[in-house]
Design a protein around this nucleic acid. Structure first.
Length: 342
DNA sequence: AAAGTACTCAACCGCGACTAT
DNA sequence: AATAGTCGCGGTTGAGTACTT
């Protein structure tokens, strides 16, 4: 038995909203709120739209103080940080960016930010590769045993040489992705806002909360956010120490809860191992040849990560460079903890 | 100038979570 | 406790636009 449709699909208009529809919806909600029921709302105001569609239109476009486009460098960094930490939890990420909608951020990430990162990484990779090739040709066999991973102190290793982490043997993978409470706690420690912090409009439901006056909303990670000024400055400066500061501020429970959340590379490794197709669109975190060459070598038995709770969280990377560097450090970290295990 | 391709973003869809009964 | 209704989220689609050939 299938799921009951939320509305009469046959009598519902789809596609772009007309200015008249927008005006109708906007003025009604501004005057009366949603009445706590989106499904019933369109009939009330004579709109031939699905309630879900009305909700989406309001949240993503009509509600006051929505910002579109023009993401700042700070916002870019914040999105990247949070994506690395918690993955594609767009609503949580959006909660950290006043005036931005989850849909906007999702689109921005998928269409630009991801490519921006990939472009940077590729560029640097090619530069390094070219450099390495030159040097290797020069040296000939002299340094044949020199692999990129061994010169980590001098320059970043060539990506494909990085170890791919073994699949993480989670017994309850789903729970790992659904620990909202932990994420929430983490974000509050970051200084994040949740719906409780926002004002309600008209009907007092939690369906359409937003700061009443966005124009007075302070810049990201400034005065509105109750985090140590050191952390704030660090973030705004894209300082790599920011992440460490955050982690220092977390207690053991937070760390434990987050350990399954923020190891993106491990997660990708796991995904690639169990279901390579799921990596579509995330290749940019690896190089293609890395995926092709290495993933096949990951043993089904794998090397267990053992007790995840004893694993120290690697820091969140606050900028593109740091993000890339962070992955390298993560690998180096893995090497340190599990020498010889790749 | 036309055709083909790539990109953007608003909107849709399906499903898990939550709530009321 | 079970069920139904609704919400909210993340993934995906596709129309419109911009860019390239």
């Amino acid at each position: 038995m299938g799921r009951a449709p939320c509305c009469d699909k046959a009598n519902v208009k789809k596609g772009p909203w007309s200015p008249e529809e927008d005006a109708k919806l906007k003025s009604y909600i501004e005057q009366n709120g949603t009445g706590g029921n989106w499904i019933a709302l369109p009939q009330k105001i004579g709109l031939k739209r699905c309630g879900k569609s009305c909700r989406l239109r309001w949240l993503n476009y009509l509600r006051p103080n929505i910002k579109h486009g023009g993401f700042s460098e700070e916002e870019d960094n914040l999105i990247c940080n949070l994506y690395i930490s918690i993955g594609s939890r767009w609503s949580i990420i959006a909660a950290q960016l006043p005036g931005r909608t989850d849909n906007d951020i999702k689109n921005y990430w998928n269409t630009r930010l991801k490519k921006k990162l990939l472009g940077k990484q590729r560029k640097e990779h090619q530069a390094r590769r070219g450099c390495n090739l030159k040097q290797e040709t020069k040296r000939g066999n002299e340094n044949s045993n020199m692999v990129a991973g061994n010169n980590i102190n001098n320059e970043n290793p060539y990506w494909p040489e990085l170890p791919v982490l073994a699949p993480v043997p989670y017994s309850n993978a789903e729970q790992r992705f659904n620990n909202h409470a932990a994420i929430r706690k983490f974000l509050i420690k970051l200084g994040g806002r949740f719906s409780e912090d926002n004002h309600l409009i008209n009907d007092g439901t939690n369906l359409h909360q937003f700061p009443v006056d966005m124009s007075s909303t302070p810049p990201i990670y400034e005065q509105s956010l109750d985090i140590p000024s050191s952390s704030r400055d660090a973030l705004n400066n894209s300082n790599a120490q920011f992440a460490q500061t955050l982690y220092n501020n977390l207690d053991g429970t937070d760390l434990q809860a987050l350990q399954g959340q923020n190891n993106l590379q491990a997660e990708l490794g796991e995904m690639a191992y169990s279901n390579p197709q799921r990596l579509d669109g995330l290749e940019f975190f690896y190089e293609e040849d890395m995926l092709n060459n290495k993933l096949g070598t990951v043993s089904g038995e794998g090397v267990g990560w053992g007790d995840m709770s004893s694993l120290v969280c690697p820091p969140v990377a606050p900028s593109y460079e740091d993000m890339q560097q962070g992955m390298l450090q993560e690998s180096a970290f893995h090497d340190l903890r599990y020498p010889g295990i790749h």
